[in-house]
Write a protein that binds this DNA or RNA. Structure first.
Length: 587
RNA sequence: CUGCCCGUAGCGUAGCUGGAUAACGCACAAGACUCCGACUCUUGAGAUCGUAGGUUCGAAUCCUAUCGGGCAGGCCA
C-alpha cells in the first residue's frame, strides 16, 4: 500500500537526481517536505522549494520549474510550478480507484500503521477511588485511556489495560468506623456505592465537627496540627487493624471494593470498556519496602525534617517524598513499586498513565526517581495529561454537590435520544438499544472533540446537543452509508467512469486516514481521530447531497459511487471504533 | 515567589516539526428537498491569531519580555 505522499516522494527523488545530481535529497526527506495546498485550485499535493534554494543557490521558482520539466508520470494529470511551489494534480478516477482498492484489500486493518507488532503497551487509566462517586471528572481518563488502548491495539501492540483502583488508605479506616456505627449489610446491598458514599461523607463531616470543637479557644495562628478527633483516631486504628490482617475488617473492605466495582462495571459496560487487570493500590503495599530499601542502599534517600526524600534540585524540581515522618509510604512510593512490578510482569515497551494535568509534576518527579534508581526502562514511562473539568464554569466539588455522576449523565443522554428515536422506531427494545449507543456516543464524542490538554467546561446542553459536529451527526452518517448499500444490494466496483470534484474530495479524505492515525498515536491524541471522522462525514455528506448513488442511472458511475460509499462505511466504522463509539446500522 | 499548561470571529474550538487567501461547529442572515434516511447541504456576514519586540525570503506556529486565566509546588492522592 503506497500512500499518495509516499509515491510522490519517490517520483520526486528521481526528478531531483535528474535535475540536480545524486545525494541531495532522499525520498524520506522529500516525504517530510510535502504538504497539501490550502486550496484545490492550486493542486492536490505540493512541494515547497524554498528550503532547497540555499543548498542549490537558485531561486525557489527556478527550482520548481526545473523539477517540473524533468518530471513526467501518468499518475499526475498536471505538474506545474507556482511561485516557489511545485504543484501536482492527480487524475481523480485513477486515484479514487486506487484508494478504494487499498481500503477493500486491507479491510478493517485499513489505516493501521502496524508499528506495534511484537510490542507491549501497558495503559493505566480510569482508576476510580473505591467508595467515592464515579463522576465526570473520571470521564477523561476513562475515555482517553481506552481510546489510546484501542489505537495501540489497532497498530498491532499487545495491550494491557490496568484499572489501578484506589482501594487502600486511611479512608477505609473511616469507612469501617462509619459502617460499624451507622451502617448495616442490607442497606449497602440494596443501595450499593451510594450508601458507601453517604457513610463516607457522614464520617468526614463528623470528624470535621469534632476537630473544630477541639480548636475552640485556641488562637487562629496556633491551630496548625492541634485538631483532635476521637473518630479520626478510631479510623486510623481500624485501618491499622486492616493492614495487620484483621479478618472482620478485611471482610468489610472486600465488600466495599466489590460493591463499588459492581457499580463502576455498569458504566464501563455502557462505554464498551473492560480491563485486563484491576490490581489496585492495595496490591502493592508489600512491594514498596524493597524499592525503599533499594533507594536507601543507592544513597538516593535523604532525611529531611524526619521524612525520607529524594532530592531533585539538579533537575529543577521540588523534592520527591518517599516516606512520611512516621515512616509510612506515599503516592510516589506506590507508583514506583507498581511500575517495577508491571515491568517485571509485562516487560512493556511503553507504560502509559492517563491522568489529570494537575499531576504532571508528580509524574515528572517519580519518573526521574525511577531513572536515578538505574532502571533502564525509565524512558518508557509516558504521562498523558488532560485538562481539568468544571461544570458550568464552577469547579467540581463533592462537598457542595457540584458533581455530575457519570451514571446520571449517560441516563440523561439516553433518555433524550430515546424521545427522538421512538417516533421512528415503534419497537421498544430496538429503540432502547439505539438510544444507548447514540446517547452515550454523543457524550464521548463531545469529550473527545478537543485536544485533551485543554480545560473543559462541561455544559450539559452542549454535551447532549445533536446538531453540528456531534456524535449523532457522524453516527447518522454511518447509518446512512449502511442504508444506501443495503438498498442497492451490492457494494459496487470502481470503474473508469469520470468522477466529479466531490467524489474526488471524498477519495482524498479517505486516503488520508492512515496519516491521521499515525499522528493520533504519536501525540497520544484521540481527538485527532475525532476530527478526522468529522472531515470524512462532511466529505461524504457533500457527496451524498450532490450525487445520486444507488439511484444513479449510469451503471458504471453507480458502481463507482457505491464502491466509494462502501469504502466510507468501512473507514467510518474503524475510526468510530477507535474513539469508543458504537456504530448502529439504523438510527 | 517558582515551575508547567492555555489565550485564534459573539461563543466553543482546529491549525503549532515555520510556507500560498487562518479552518470547523454553534448562534445570526439568505437559500436548496415530488430525491438513495432533512439529525442533510449551499451561500453570506463575522479574526489587526492577548500585547510588544526579535529570528527569517516567509511567523498563529520558533525565541525573549509582558498581561490575563488555570494548575502544581515535603509528610493527601
Amino acid at each position: 500500500m503506497l500512500t499518495l505522499k509516499k509515491k510522490t516522494a519517490l517520483l520526486l527523488e528521481e526528478a531531483v537526481k535528474g535535475a540536480f545530481g545524486e545525494g541531495l535529497l532522499s525520498a524520506d526527506e522529500i516525504f517530510e517536505m510535502l504538504e497539501y495546498p490550502p486550496d484545490r485550485s492550486m493542486g492536490d499535493i505540493a512541494l515547497p522549494c524554498f528550503r532547497l534554494s540555499k543548498s542549490l543557490r537558485k531561486a525557489p521558482p527556478m527550482i520548481a520549474s526545473a523539477l517540473a520539466e524533468s518530471l513526467s508520470c501518468e499518475e499526475f494529470s498536471e505538474i506545474n510550478a507556482m511561485g516557489g511551489y511545485l504543484n501536482f494534480r492527480i487524475s481523480p478516477t485513477a486515484f479514487a480507484s486506487r484508494v478504494v482498492s487499498d481500503i477493500r484489500a486491507a479491510g478493517d486493518k485499513y489505516g493501521s500503521p502496524m508499528c506495534g507488532e511484537g510490542k507491549c503497551v501497558v495503559l493505566d487509566y480510569s482508576s476510580p477511588n473505591v467508595a467515592k462517586p464515579f463522576h465526570i471528572g473520571h470521564l477523561g481518563t476513562t475515555v482517553i485511556g481506552h481510546s489510546l488502548k484501542l489505537l495501540h491495539e489497532f497498530a498491532g501492540y499487545k495491550c494491557v489495560g490496568i484499572n489501578y483502583l484506589g482501594d487502600w488508605g486511611t479512608q477505609f479506616g473511616k469507612l469501617i468506623v462509619a459502617y460499624k456505627k451507622w451502617g448495616d449489610k442490607a442497606t449497602i446491598e440494596a443501595g450499593g456505592v451510594d450508601e458507601l458514599v453517604k457513610l463516607y461523607v457522614k464520617i468526614n463531616n463528623a470528624i470535621k465537627a469534632e476537630e473544630e470543637e477541639s480548636l475552640q479557644g485556641i488562637p487562629e495562628a496556633e491551630r496548625a496540627g492541634k485538631a483532635k478527633s476521637a473518630l479520626a483516631d478510631e479510623s486510623r486504628a481500624e485501618f491499622r487493624k486492616l493492614e495487620d490482617g484483621d479478618e472482620e475488617n478485611l471482610a468489610l473492605w472486600r465488600n466495599f471494593v466489590s460493591v463499588s466495582l459492581e457499580e463502576y462495571e455498569k458504566t464501563y459496560k455502557l462505554l464498551g470498556i473492560s480491563f485486563d487487570s484491576y490490581l489496585g493500590e492495595s496490591f502493592y503495599t508489600d512491594k514498596m519496602p524493597a524499592q525503599v530499601e533499594k533507594l536507601r542502599n543507592m544513597g538516593l534517600l535523604e532525611i529531611d525534617d524526619g521524612a525520607s526524600i529524594v532530592n531533585l534540585d539538579k533537575w529543577n524540581m521540588p523534592v520527591c517524598l518517599i516516606l512520611k515522618r512516621d515512616g509510612t509510604t506515599l503516592y510516589p512510593t506506590r507508583d514506583i513499586a507498581a511500575a517495577v512490578y508491571r515491568h517485571g510482569e509485562y516487560n512493556f515497551d511503553k507504560a502509559i498513565y492517563v491522568t489529570s494535568a494537575a499531576q504532571s509534576l508528580h509524574f515528572a518527579q517519580w519518573f526521574k526517581v525511577v531513572e536515578l534508581m538505574g532502571y533502564d526502562w525509565y524512558d518508557k514511562l509516558v504521562h498523558v495529561p488532560y485538562g481539568t473539568v468544571s461544570i458550568n464554569g464552577a469547579k467540581l466539588a463533592t462537598r457542595t454537590g457540584n458533581v455530575i455522576l457519570l451514571r446520571d449523565l449517560f441516563d440523561e443522554a439516553i433518555k433524550r435520544v430515546y424521545e427522538i428515536t421512538k417516533e421512528k422506531h415503534p419497537d421498544e427494545r430496538e429503540c432502547t438499544e439505539i438510544a444507548e449507543k447514540v446517547g452515550v456516543g454523543a457524550v464521548i464524542f463531545y469529550y473527545l472533540s478537543n485536544n485533551r490538554i485543554r480545560d473543559i467546561n462541561f455544559v450539559m446542553e452542549e454535551a447532549l446537543s445533536f446538531d453540528g459536529n456531534t456524535g449523532p451527526y457522524v453516527q447518522y452518517t454511518y447509518a446512512r452509508t449502511c442504508s444506501i448499500l443495503e438498498k442497492a444490494g451490492c457494494e459496487g466496483e470502481m470503474t473508469d467512469a469520470p468522477l466529479t470534484e466531490v467524489e474526488f474530495e471524498l477519495a482524498k479524505t479517505l486516503s488520508v486516514f492512515p496519516e491521521r492515525i499515525k499522528s493520533a498515536l504519536a501525540d497520544y491524541e484521540p481527538s485527532t481521530v475525532t476530527r478526522y471522522i468529522l472531515d470524512l462525514a462532511a466529505a461524504f455528506n457533500r457527496f451524498y447531497h450532490d450525487c445520486k448513488i444507488a439511484a444513479c442511472e449510469d451503471e458504471k458511475l453507480r458502481s463507482s459511487r457505491l464502491a466509494l460509499t462502501a469504502a466510507t462505511r468501512q473507514v467510518l466504522k474503524t475510526a468510530l471504533g477507535l474513539i469508543c463509539l458504537q456504530t448502529p446500522e439504523k438510527i
